[in-house]
Simulated scan of single mutants.
Amino acid sequence: MIMKKIVSFIVFVLFLSEVKAQDFALKQLEDSPRHHEWVKVKSGDREVHCFVVFPEVSTEATVAIVIHENRGLTDWVRSFSDQLAEAGYIAVAPDLLSGFSSEYKKTSDFPSSDDARNALYELAAEQVQNDLNAVQAFAAKMEAGNGNTVAIGFCWGGSQSFRFATYNKQLDAALVFYGSAPESESAIGNIVAPVYGFYGENDSRINSGIPATEKMMKEAGKTYDYEIYDGAGHAYMRQGDDPDASGDNKTARDKSWERIKAILSEI
């Protein structure tokens, strides 16, 4: 009984820590003047929960499909989506843990972010592909959209963003934040959209694959343009949003936002 109480207390403390870590993102969302809504996108016999944010603009806008990190659709991912809308773009952030089980129907249903992460790695690649294709088709037809769609992904989502470009020829760009690239030359050969990479200097696990990716993309005649930000680590976009962020992560985050806006302004 004592051990059970100790374990429960540890889980509770970790939960509070996770909640506190997202406090800045929640505040940003609560203070936002922009319109937020949840929609369900049909994907075969599944429904994908999506968080949608609209910009305060008078013209139709490009739609950015925001692919979350390996802990699911978190408050920070929603906060990033809101920041995209602040920059003038429609953001659609799908929860790829939608319908995981009868008990866990979306990311927020999981007891902890570790549980969400473990579930994410159980997803079938085909299901992820089908869900993202369905979301792209939805995004391309949004009445407030201009028909252009881009993918922006982080960590696990960064890898998915790169892969998205290998099987969906309707994307206008793929922005990959510290995610790995497909290793198949045939998959690389299917890419139509330009791919833009964003990496932190202190992320050797991901960065070690960049030379091979660059070589394959160049040989296939594909656009692969990337930046490596000095002193930044993995997940620097999320960490750089935190008011207590390190100087390097914050600088990398700010420079990346400038680059995001420059890229999207050309689409």
Rank of each mutant, 00 (worst) to 15 (best):
residue 248 D to A: 15
residue 70 N to S: 11
residue 148 N to L: 03
residue 143 E to S: 14
residue 39 V to W: 11
residue 134 A to N: 08
residue 231 G to W: 02
residue 256 S to W: 09
residue 248 D to C: 11
residue 14 L to K: 13
residue 124 A to P: 01
residue 202 N to C: 08
residue 233 G to Q: 08
residue 113 S to H: 08
residue 179 G to D: 05
residue 28 Q to P: 00
residue 22 Q to T: 08
residue 99 G to D: 09
residue 64 A to V: 10
residue 156 W to Y: 12
residue 53 V to I: 02
residue 137 A to C: 02
residue 1 M to L: 13
residue 26 L to C: 13
residue 130 N to E: 15
residue 221 G to V: 09
residue 72 G to T: 09
residue 8 S to W: 06
residue 113 S to C: 02
residue 15 F to C: 01
residue 192 V to M: 06
residue 61 A to D: 04
residue 151 A to C: 04
residue 46 R to N: 14
residue 73 L to Q: 15
residue 202 N to D: 12
residue 174 A to P: 01
residue 74 T to D: 09
residue 127 Q to M: 06
residue 122 E to I: 11
residue 87 A to T: 05
residue 265 S to V: 02
residue 166 T to I: 05
residue 133 N to H: 02
residue 64 A to I: 14
residue 121 Y to T: 01
residue 186 S to G: 09
residue 231 G to N: 03
residue 195 V to W: 06
residue 254 D to C: 11
residue 161 S to H: 06
residue 113 S to T: 12
residue 224 Y to D: 01
residue 109 D to S: 13
residue 206 I to E: 08
residue 86 E to P: 00
residue 58 S to R: 15
residue 257 W to Q: 09
residue 149 T to L: 00
residue 163 R to K: 13
residue 192 V to I: 12
residue 60 E to Y: 04
residue 46 R to V: 06
residue 151 A to L: 12
residue 245 A to H: 05
residue 5 K to E: 10
residue 109 D to Y: 09
residue 261 K to L: 04
residue 215 K to H: 10
residue 67 I to H: 06
residue 68 H to W: 04
residue 66 V to S: 02
residue 74 T to R: 14
residue 116 A to Y: 03
residue 30 E to M: 12
residue 7 V to T: 14
residue 198 F to L: 05
residue 217 M to I: 03
residue 141 K to H: 04
residue 47 E to L: 07
residue 50 C to M: 05
residue 98 S to E: 06
residue 23 D to E: 15
residue 208 S to M: 05
residue 191 I to F: 06
residue 67 I to L: 15
residue 168 N to L: 05
residue 130 N to L: 05
residue 137 A to Y: 02
residue 199 Y to H: 02
residue 200 G to T: 03
residue 208 S to G: 10
residue 259 R to A: 11
residue 1 M to P: 08
residue 171 L to T: 11
residue 206 I to G: 11
residue 255 K to L: 13
residue 18 E to D: 09
residue 168 N to Q: 10
residue 3 M to E: 15
residue 212 A to E: 08
residue 145 G to R: 08
residue 13 V to R: 00
residue 209 G to Q: 14
residue 264 L to V: 14
residue 214 E to N: 08
residue 235 A to N: 08
residue 89 Y to Q: 04
residue 140 A to K: 15
residue 169 K to R: 09
residue 185 E to C: 00
residue 206 I to K: 07
residue 194 P to M: 10
residue 167 Y to K: 08
residue 22 Q to G: 06
residue 34 R to H: 14
residue 184 S to E: 04
residue 172 D to M: 07
residue 17 S to H: 05
residue 139 A to P: 03
residue 94 P to M: 13
residue 235 A to K: 05
residue 69 E to P: 01
residue 76 W to Q: 08
residue 21 A to S: 14
residue 142 M to G: 10
residue 166 T to S: 13
residue 2 I to H: 01
residue 185 E to V: 04
residue 44 G to M: 05
residue 246 S to F: 00
residue 192 V to C: 08
residue 120 L to P: 03
residue 214 E to S: 12
residue 216 M to P: 01
residue 38 W to F: 14
residue 27 K to S: 04
residue 189 G to P: 00
residue 175 L to C: 00
residue 202 N to K: 13
residue 253 R to V: 01
residue 100 F to R: 13
residue 211 P to N: 07
residue 21 A to G: 03
residue 206 I to T: 14
residue 240 G to I: 06
residue 258 E to A: 11
residue 22 Q to L: 10
residue 27 K to H: 11
